[in-house]
Design a protein around this nucleic acid. Sequence first.
DNA 1: GACCTGCTGCGGTTTG
Length: 737
Amino acid sequence: MIHEHEKLDHRVQRWIFKQGWTGLREIQCLAIEPILSEKTDVLISASTAAGKTEAFFLPALSAIAVQETGVGILYVSPLKALINDQDRRLESLSDLLEIPVTPWHGDSSKGRKKKLKASPSGVVLITPESLESLLIRDSDWIRAAFSNLKYIVIDEFHAFIGSERGHHLLSLLHRLEHLIGRLETPIPRVALSATLGELEKVPLSLRPNRSLPCKIVKDTHSTSTLKVQVKGYVNPANLATESSNDAEYTICQDLFKFCRGGNHLVFANSRSRTENIAATLSDFCEEKIVPNEFFPHHGSLSKDLRESLEKRLQQEHYPTTAICTMTLELGIDIGKVNSVIQVTAPHSISSLRQRMGRSGRRGGASILRMLIAEAELTKDSSVIDKLRLELIQSLAMIRLLIGSKWYEPADTSLYHFSTLLHQVLAVTAQWGGIRPEQLFSLLCKDGPFQNVNVENFKALLVHMGKKELITQLGSGELVLGLLGEKLTSHYSFYAVFKTPEEFRIVRGTKSLGTLPVDSLVLEGQHIVFGGKRWKVNDIDSEKKVIYVEHAKGGKPPKFGGAGLNIHDVVRQEMFQILKDGDYKISVGDQKVDFADSAARELFGESVRYFEGAKLSREPLLQAGNTTYIFPWLGDKVVNTIVALLIQHGFEAGAYAGVIEVEKASLESVRSTLLKLASMELPTETELAQQVLEKRIEKFDEFLPESTLSIGYGAKAFDMTNTEAWLKKIKTQTDCLI
DNA sequence: GACCTGCTGCGGTTTG
């Protein structure tokens, strides 16, 4: 394997030497042979900054270095910013090989696009949406330009997998292979990612029809070390808002201590908390008369503000801490930071892993601090507070991250009907006219929508006809209808995901960012935005602009938001920790304690309550008029149990995975659960029929009710695991009798 | 009690 690099083009070898590299990394060596073979898909899974991009491009550029004409490599990225980074990173190597690289997205140079149009060759860096636009508007050019295409590479594959946008991408790639006559001899796909759960299942998500095998390349010995600490905080009960005694203020004081003078990332999970923390930390700087080094970074801030902060982080000239949301999670180039701090529990282990990858300078340890505030207990405290579930969830996620290296896998049971409808329109627009059976094989039978059967598809087409999205000609061919024509001819068509309407926040003539309109903003109201406090002067509903001026004090804007989706494995780990009364991680014959004394104290309270209520054996608990159910399973199962109970006349809801059944005795809930365990349960689709608002995705508004129920049912409910849980409850009860 | 991503053609202005 030491001589693998000799298979690379001589100029590529010379370039490697010139970089001063002592040799190739393990994954880079391992990737050479499968990529050069051109006979297999390749999944390259390695941690951040392990050289995944080079692992692909060194051999792939070698393979196309001798290619005369046509685009040889199509690189697909979820972010424009990533395309711009890659364009810069590839410059020296592509210059040496005289291979042109063309970034192709909404904001990229028109001149370079024009040049590629005139003489297509080399590497194209593109977003899925731009590829869609080219397929619809210029498929003849695509057919010619991509006729010699050797590789398709997808960066940050985990950002696509399992989502509407991911299915869009798979459909685009399948349509591309179809267009250039490569269905029989598919173009090898290479997926790059740091955090993929259940690796062996990923190839199916890269190519659902399995027309090529997939080679998995991963680094076998990850040398990176992690240093983790969980700190607990107690939020005093009965406090007036914005008190200097509340937990968030104490957390900010600690953040100031940890971060000042260095480069750090603070992930705060919501834009409003991000804004609050950044403002408080800036205030601390002002009080101490030192330059501010704390800045917010999230999706509603303007590109200018975000980019200047990214640059400041990367240059490392000044100490800088970004308080951020997932905008700094993906691979945009900001260099490594001293440490990562997570305030409030993370939403998934894969995102936690992604965040940790941002820390660890010069091969040193990654440092993660997790700051978790729980409410001070009073006689009115809820069961969820008494169990300290946010802390328990955080501990469970750290154990899964470090102990079992497990990440949430993609949910492959989904239908993605909204995106399927989009693709019916896109393909019809691309071809002008198409027969229904051709559409079905292209999109469902051979394409990525394999969960959709002929009946589902027929129902969809019939409804699309009724809505004038498509029309059937006498010949049987489908063409665009009036509304379909209108939708596909507007640029907003290309993306399959939905964007809420937003107001621009403007100070004088300077745009500070945008705010979703579902939030309440009134004239005279004080808001926090861009890390500073503002007073709203005027709102222009027509132009969708909010005019602001500087102000002191004020409340943050209320950003909108929806539900969580915690996985079964996380909840099972939480149960295990509480049952064992121990969260520590075994390393060799030692146990590593990663919690501070306050977190240990909170954990003790949780375990005492757990044991007192006998929750290790008893899934039900009555407190006053309310009965609680503890399935210790993911939100899909929790949703399913709630829906079943509502069907049986109960008032039920769930919080943090715990089901609350109001005005119900433990015995009445238990007998209903036992009844459910022995009867035939409704299907997920049938359960979805009782849900009133099912239109969530961008094109859901055009779907027939029956199709919506199928899609919603698969997304929200899990009858198989619910049934298994009910049977377990029944067996336990039978044993007791 | 959540987050993020993307898109065109053309008319206008400025610059070489």
